[in-house]
């Protein structure tokens, strides 16, 4: 194949995106596990690991900039390079949200989370699925898959709405002590972090669609 050098650096960048995404996906799983089991060591590992995620993001960004400067990609090559720059920023932010959840686990310590817990794990699983699906759709240039993943964001948002309403009802209806109050606000915080993960994954899907069609489209404008 002609342009071997460019093909190789492109493959290297794509592998880098895949690696960063799997690193972030693990951060989501670990942070939720830490929250569920109050595993402080695991929570600490997610918080510490975020620095590594950030560094990987900047290294990838630099790699793509080098590729653009030296290889001057055009057409779909250009769209892919520009998209990767945007996607690594989204991945890094998803990592930050996982870190946020791990920090909530650390903060809560032994305290229980408020009552709608099952919803939270379902929500996190959907966000994780969105992340993986969005990256797959980008790397496989699959527009239909990207659009299907975007639909999942509605489900994530619906769960967030439910949790949000539940928390508001509880906070306004009952006489709560400080610990209970804390546990509800932390539930809200945790679900908000997951909701934002879904939005970021939607951004990645938009890039997948742009890569295939060459058009910028905003899908599922979030109300949050």
């Amino acid at each position: 194949m002609p342009r071997t050098a460019f093909g190789e650096s492109q493959q290297h960048a794509e592998d880098g995106v895949r690696l960063l995404a799997s690193r972030v996906e693990k951060a989501i799983v670990d942070s939720m596990e830490a929250l569920r089991t109050r595993n402080m060591t695991l929570a600490r590992a997610v918080v510490d690991g975020d620095t590594d995620v950030n560094q990987k993001r900047y290294a990838l960004e630099e790699e793509v900039l080098q590729m653009m400067a030296t290889q001057a990609p055009v057409a779909s090559d250009l769209r892919e390079s520009v998209s990767i720059l945007s996607i690594v920023a989204d991945l890094e932010r998803i990592g930050d949200h996982a870190e946020g959840i791990a920090r909530i686990a650390l903060f809560l310590g032994d305290q229980p989370l408020a009552s709608t817990e099952p919803d939270l794990w379902v929500m996190a699983e959907k966000a994780r699925e969105m992340l993986r699906g969005s990256i797959d759709s980008f790397l496989e240039r699959d527009e239909a898959a990207a659009r299907a993943i975007c639909d999942l964001d509605d489900e994530v948002d619906q769960i967030y709405d439910r949790i949000h309403r539940h928390v508001i009802e509880q906070l306004s209806g009952l006489p709560l002590d400080a610990q209970e109050f804390d546990s509800y606000t932390h539930l809200l915080w945790a679900s908000h972090n997951i909701e934002r993960m879904g939005d970021r994954a939607t951004n990645i899907c938009e890039r997948a669609i742009f890569l295939v069609t060459g058009r910028f489209e905003e899908i599922n404008v979030s109300s949050y």
């Binding site: 055009v74 057409a75 769209r79 060459g214």
Partner: peptide, 13 residues
């Protein structure tokens, strides 16, 4: 940025 014909894409890339 987004050529319509595959052959154009192949040539310019």
């Amino acid at each position: 940025t987004n050529p319509e014909d595959r052959r154009t894409e192949d040539y310019i890339t």
